[in-house]
Amino acid sequence: MNELIFFINKVLISGTVLGSIYALGAIGVTLIFGILRFAHFAHGDMMTMGGFIAFLLALLATSLGIVTPIPTGFLVLPLAMVIAVFIALGIDKGFYAPLRKRGARPVTLLIASIGVTLIIQGLIRLFFGSASYSFFDNEPKEIFQIDMSAIGATRPITFTEPQLLMVIVTVVAVLALHFFLTRSRLGKAMRAMADNADLAQVSGINTALVVRVTWVIAGALACAAGTMLALDVSLKPDLAFNIVLPIFAAAIVGGLGQSYGAIAGGFLIGFAETMAVFNWAILLRPFKDVLPFEIPADLAIVPTEYKLTVAFVILVIVLLWRPTGIFKGASS
C-alpha cells in the first residue's frame, strides 16, 4: 500500500499543486489575450513581484508583532493583491496604453511586454539581489500527515499548509471568476469584448473600463499565484520566470482567450509533468511475483531533469494537432 501512498504524494498532490499554480497564471494570460489580443510575457514577473510585495508586507506584519495561526504571508495576501492591482494598472497606463492608442500591432505589445519583464526583473534584483527568501523564517511551515494505517500503509499522505491553501485559493478564484463572468454586467461585458471588440464598442460598452477590469483581475491573480508559489517553495527573483513558459503552454493548450480552457490546460500540464517524471516501476512492485518479466529500476517516462520540457512537448503536439487549443481559442 505504501506504493499507492507514494503515488498519491508524488503525482496527485504534486500535480494538483502545480496545476493550481499554472491555472492561476494561465487565467491571467488568457484574459489579457482575450481582451487586448497580445501574449503578455511579463505575467511571470508580475507573479514574482506579487510574491515580493507579500513578502515585504509579511515582514512588516511580523515587525508589528502580528502573529496568527495561519501563515503571515497568506494573511497579508489581500493587501498585497490590492497593491499588485495598482501596479498592474500603472504598467498598462505607462507601457501598453500609449502603444494601443497609436494603433500598434499586437506583436509590438508582445515585445513591449518583454521590456516590462526586463524592467521588473531588474528592479526586483536591484532591491533583493539574487538570494532566495523564505516566508517561514519566523514561523514553522505546518505539515499535514494523514495516517493511512487503516488500509495497511505505513507511510502517511503528506502535504503542507501552503499547498492546502493554494488549492483553496485556486478553487475560490475559479468559482469567483466563473460567477463574475456569467452573472455580472461587467463580466459579461468582458466576454463580449473578448468575443467581438468592435461590436462591444458599438453597443456602448465602456471598453476602457473593461480593459481596466482585466488588469485588475490579472494583477490580483498573478499576485495570488506568485505568493502561493513562494509560500510553497521559496521566494527568488526568477521564481516565475521559469514558470511563465508552462503557463503559456497551459493557456495555449486550453485555447488562448478561454478562461475555462486555461484552468483545464493548467491542470493538464501540471499532471502531465508530475506523471512524466514519476517512476512507474514503484506501482508495479507489489505485483512483482505475478508479472512474467523483471521490473526495471527506473520506469519514468522522461528523466527528472527534462520535467520542464514536458510542457513544451505537449504544447507542440497540441499546436500541431489543434492549433487553436483544445477549447478552440480566439484568433486574431
Partner: peptide
C-alpha cells in the same frame, strides 16, 4: 443605436446575453 452589417452578434454568448449587452449603458 447602431447595427453593423457584419459580425453584429456576440457569437459565443447566448441570445439573452447579447440583448443584455445592448442594455449595458
Amino acid at each position: 443605436s447602431f447595427v453593423p452589417q457584419e459580425k453584429n452578434v456576440f457569437t459565443s454568448m447566448s441570445v439573452e446575453e447579447n440583448l443584455e449587452m445592448g442594455a449595458f449603458t
